[in-house]
Design a binder for these strands. Structure first.
Length: 643
RNA sequence: GCCCCCAUAGUUAAGCGGCAUAACAAGUCCAUGGUAAGGAUUAGUGAGAAGUUCAAUUCUUCUUGGGGGCACCA
């Protein structure tokens, strides 16, 4: 007697062992048709797997996301199958499910081409049509290793060797083709959705290690139906339209060029945006008790040796030798410079916490392949600050920083923020006792924020553990922006002291923190988040003044002057084009307000305002128009933005 | 850094082993206008280096930069 409990609590009894399919059939024939896999006591299993003792069973169909994942996994399998049918010189390795699809890594001397992808897709469709039956076998470990070695599948043999001893080695057959796999799988290839597409070819290291061979990865996406697939492809297209590199060019914000790979040439408009963000941040920091400083870009090698950067960070550092043969480094971080400012004049415990902020431009040599528009550059500006405090102040100061960060992100509409806590890396400076202390203090502070956090082992900075503030952008990518690090090391190495209550000189603790992280990256994220349609306070040009014809140029100039007086960033378009043309042009360049000046307006000292995205217009007196602009275009505070 | 792909006018693209195209943008002229492109006209182009060839923008090699990934990371 086998008693099966279904998810809704209903029980079905069978006189002997049953398969998942039997159970589905018992419930309804339509369910049996739709069933893909089953979940037995929390383990996903094949539909054909036998259940011989009482269990809780869930029948999973394609409507379930877990069902879709199984479909994707199967699609990855037939991708491998198709590739091996077409290209016999190919070894298979791994092929997992990822967000929206799957990939499979292959080892083959000759690279796959775009044309190959089409051939492979055709072959995959053929395999689905052949409706090959899936069977599962459990093999002896040694037999499996020998077998895969014999047929030249050395990667598979290596995988089996690394499977924990207590796990069984399961082999799946789809017709004659077979692969090592944990499963579960659909009962035949005919059940696989035809709504898939192979999307790209890429290189990927075996086991993700750059020391290993580079394999060829084929990515694919797969969905329940053609409609879902088309939807997905459309979403990708939409995301592409928001690409900050494209918009940055169209909106005339910035450019890159060969002579300085990974460094931004900011154009007038992009730089204005940059300055608006700094204004915003400067004001917030002032309210929060920070003092702004600025330190040199180039500092003698000896200081970097002292701080530990020379030893631990050199691969990212630009250096320069002067005609007198002194070696300098261009700063990759602001901290050593900041400590020099702290060290001027003896500090008392009464001065702590001392918060020194700096909009510091740092240079880091990054590998060429990692560069990506504004998101990953070689020269960037941090909204950096170093908080010198006592051990007892760490938690409180961390909470203050967190609050400030969340407030600032929220002001831009980023409400989805995660924390990542990273502890000591292999490459580090300082005594492990100090690390124990720093990690404990920071982890406590993380817990005190009551935010969701994940732990990244060994990913801290070389001088201290860190938390990272990760936000999601409009196309679902995670970006690390803010960061906070607890540092007991640099104050010692760079001889920072304060005099405590008891009259004894002690080292302060340093909290390194950045909120936007990199201004450059943050701007990239903002452009994509707003699809280029920046809120008016950030928009580089806030108003375009458009005369209806040349006859009203002078009146338009008067309006423009009025805007200038009120510090509203505006342009005036005196081109001899029709108003239709001008409205179109400036709408495309995403200027928040258009002010139209014609006979009517000149007559009663007014302007007609058209807001970006609206079709209606409103005629206001100059006075009222200026009030509206000043209200909507000035740099706000967090408090104003958050409602 | 590694694998694959790409490089044509200010921008987006087309094309060809033998005069290099189009659209938009820019300039000039006409039109003087009321909310997403008025008309005419002018000028402007194959990343860099080497090779094959009678002839290279086109084929080959290298360099540089860019893109998609991997690795690395703010």
């Amino acid at each position: 007697m086998v008693n099966i409990t279904l998810l809704d609590g209903k029980k079905i009894s069978f006189s002997e062992k049953v398969t998942g399919l039997d159970i589905a059939k018992k419930i309804s024939t339509s369910l049996a048709k739709k069933a893909l896999v089953i979940k037995v006591d929390n383990h996903l299993k094949d539909l054909s797997s036998e259940i011989s003792k009482d269990a809780t069973v869930e029948i999973i169909t394609e409507e379930d996301d877990r069902g879709l994942e199984v479909i994707r996994h199967d699609t990855a399998h037939i991708l491998a199958m198709a590739v091996q049918e077409l290209f016999s010189d190919t070894q298979v390795t791994i092929g997992p499910v990822i967000e929206n699809g799957f990939y499979y890594d292959f080892s083959r001397k000759k690279p796959f081409t775009e044309d190959d992808l089409e051939k492979i897709e055709k072959k995959m469709l053929e395999i689905i049509s052949r409706n090959e039956i899936t069977t599962r076998e459990v093999w002896d470990r040694k037999k499996a290793i020998d077998h895969f070695k014999k047929i030249g599948e050395h990667y598979k043999a290596e995988i089996i060797e690394s499977i924990p001893k207590n796990e069984e080695i399961s082999i799946y057959y789809h017709g004659k083709w077979h692969d090592l796999c944990r499963g579960p799988h659909l009962s035949s290839t005919g059940k696989i959705s035809k709504a898939f597409k192979l999307t790209k070819i890429a290189g990927a290291y075996w086991r993700g290690d750059s020391k290993n061979e580079m394999l060829q990865r084929i990515y694919g996406t797969s969905w329940r139906s053609k409609d879902e697939l088309d939807d997905y492809l459309k979403r990708l297209e939409e995301a592409e339209k928001r690409d900050h590199r494209k918009l940055g060019k169209v909106l005339d914000f910035f450019h890159f060029q060969e002579e300085s790979p990974g460094s931004v040439f900011w154009h007038e408009k992009g730089w204005q945006l940059f300055q608006s963000l700094i204004d915003f941040m400067r004001h917030q920091q002032l309210i929060s008790g920070y003092k702004e400083i600025n330190t040199p870009e180039i500092l003698d090698k000896s200081l970097w040796e002292k701080s530990g950067h020379w030893e631990k960070f050199q691969e990212h550092m630009y250096t320069t030798t002067t005609p007198d043969e002194r070696v300098f480094a261009i700063k990759p971080m602001n901290c050593p410079g900041c400590v020099q400012v702290f060290n001027q004049g003896l500090k008392s415990y009464r001065d702590l916490p001392l918060k020194l902020s700096e909009f510091g431009r740092v240079h880091r040599y990054e590998t060429s392949g990692s560069l990506h528009g504004l998101m990953r550059v070689r020269s960037f500006t941090q909204d950096d600050a170093h908080i010198f405090c006592t051990e007892n102040q760490i938690t409180e100061e961390t909470l203050k920083v967190t609050k400030l960060i969340l407030g600032i992100y929220k002001a831009f509409g980023f409400e989805n923020v995660l924390l990542k806590y990273s502890d000591r890396p292999a490459k580090r400076v300082g005594d492990d006792r100090l690390w124990d202390k720093a990690e404990k203090a920071l982890l406590e502070a993380v817990k005190a924020t009551k935010l969701k956090y994940s732990i990244n082992k060994g990913e801290g900075a070389f001088y201290g553990p860190k938390i990272e503030f990760v936000l999601k952008d409009s196309i679902g990518r995670d970006w690390q922006c803010g960061t906070l690090q607890v540092d007991f090391n640099l104050p010692q190495r760079l001889e920072a002291f304060y005099v405590d209550q008891d009259g004894i000189k002690k080292h302060p603790v340093m909290l390194h923190r950045a909120l936007f992280g990199s201004l450059e990256r943050f701007i990239g994220i903002l452009i994509e988040n707003y699809a280029g349609k920046l809120p008016s306070w950030l928009s580089p040009v806030q108003v375009a003044v458009l005369p209806i014809s040349e006859n009203f140029d002078n009146y338009a100039k008067k309006i423009s002057n009025e805007l200038n007086k009120n510090k509203i960033r505006n342009i005036i378009d005196l081109k001899s084009e029709k108003i239709n043309y001008k409205v179109r042009e400036h709408s495309i360049s995403k200027i928040p307000y258009l002010m139209i000046c014609g006979a009517q307006e000149e007559k009663d000292n007014s302007v007609t305002i058209r807001k970006l995205g609206d079709e209606k217009q409103e005629t206001l007196s100059i006075h009222k128009a200026m009030d509206l602009m000043m209200k909507d275009c000035s740099v706000p505070t967090i408090q104003e933005l958050s409602h």
